[in-house]
Design a protein around this nucleic acid. Structure first.
Length: 353
DNA sequence: AATGGCCTCAACCGCTGCAAG
DNA sequence: CCTTGCAGCGGTTGAGGCCAT
């Protein structure tokens, strides 16, 4: 295997990072920032390529990194987001503050392996929405139209044919169930974790807590000082990505338009249509953020988008079967097997964005 | 205690997109 | 428009730990 162009130098070290190397990198980044990664190794006194330094910083040394096991809420969020955006780990990570794409990717891959080895055989549709099971439910009846069926759901549906009977709609695109209840909790947990980790790193590096010499530019670490605390359960406290989108958040009318525009029938997802794809991703970002806000501010919010609904006896009391010509986005009350107090969102984003 | 298989996760590789010249 | 360099992303690898035998 050939090395990256920046790693052609003879003395470039590879493999695991030593604590000394970590310290050098932390010291350099916290002092100078990282305007150009290719210059970092030399200036930091590291025999590594810039790319390696970048990876080490982003995936391990960043002060706002959050480590440890994924919480059930994070797991749900990953599953949900993966069903929407597929293997776009960076995008998924942007909705899991403190988590890296690498971490999520590793987690997902190991999770998938388990799924392959031990295919789940849920006993009912409702069981899908329990805290431990994938809460992604996909109505799917046209593989030629929606080719990149989410892997998990493919796995699930393959082992649960009756789900199709119960949940297939006239839609030609999949529908997803979204439990967005994890956001508030994550925001608070993340803040605490960020502060704690920041303090750890700072104490490790050994500089004072006040005059950290940041030469901030667009690439330099903006996580210092620690992020302001979220007001107690402030519904407006959102991860950085979401914060940046606050201004973009639509009012209800705009939101409605966004949802409308995500109708699969209106989506041109042909290969090569990159700009449109980017637009879709931007819309998706906006949409996810809006769902987070809506679910935070009105957890029992019920949103219908030109959908008809009927109570489906097959799915038990409280559940709603969606019947519609298209696959608009709706939030329906959670089934009795869920936490109940929160809404579940059905969306029509294809997994193959 | 030894060993082999499995799992996790840090790190690397190759590719793509973008911006500057 | 082309080339070059860089950042970022997703796929893959491999070391090391864990666990069952």
């Amino acid at each position: 295997m050939g090395h990256h162009s920046c790693c052609n130098q003879q003395k470039v070290k590879r493999g695991l990072w030593s604590p000394e190397e970590d310290e050098k990198l932390i010291r350099y980044i916290t002092t100078h920032g990282y305007g150009c990664w290719s210059e970092v190794p030399e200036k930091a006194g590291l025999q590594r390529c810039g790319k390696s330094c970048r990876l080490r910083w982003i995936n391990y040394l960043r002060p706002d990194i959050r480590r440890g096991r994924f919480t059930p809420e994070e797991e749900k969020l990953i599953i949900n987001l993966h069903s929407v955006v597929g293997n776009r780990w960076a995008h998924i990570a942007s909705h899991l503050p403190g988590r890296t794409d690498n971490e999520i990717k590793n987690y997902w891959n190991s999770w998938i392996k388990k799924k392959i080895r031990k295919p789940s055989t849920p006993s009912s549709t409702a069981s899908l929405t329990t805290s431990t099971a994938p809460i992604v439910q996909m109505a799917y009846n046209d593989s030629s139209t929606c080719q990149q069926l989410d892997f998990v759901n493919q796995d699930y549906i393959a082992t649960k044919p009756e789900v199709q009977d119960q949940t297939l709609f006239s839609s030609t695109c999949p529908m997803f169930m979204f439990d967005t209840t994890a956001i508030d909790q994550l925001a608070v947990e993340n803040y605490n974790a960020r502060v704690e980790l920041f303090q750890d790193v700072v104490s490790t590096v050994g500089f004072g807590n006040s005059d950290v010499p940041w030469n901030l530019n667009q690439h330099q670490v903006q996580a210092l000082p620690p992020p302001p605390p979220p007001p107690a359960m402030d519904i407006n406290y959102l991860p950085p990505l979401i914060e940046n989108m606050d201004n973009m958040l639509p009012n209800m009318a705009d939101h409605h338009q966004v949802l409308q525009s995500n109708n699969c029938n209106n989506m041109d997802i042909e290969e090569g249509d990159h700009h449109h794809h980017q637009d879709q991703m931007a819309e998706l970002n906006e949409w996810v953020a809006s769902q987070q806000q809506y679910s935070s501010s009105c957890s029992n919010f019920l949103f219908w988008d030109e959908m008809n609904s009927v109570v489906d006896d097959h799915q038990g009391p409280g559940s709603i079967n969606i019947v519609g010509e298209d696959h608009h986005n709706v939030i329906v009350p959670a089934t009795s097997s869920t936490t109940g107090a929160h809404a579940v969102l059905l969306s029509s984003f294809p997994s193959s964005l």
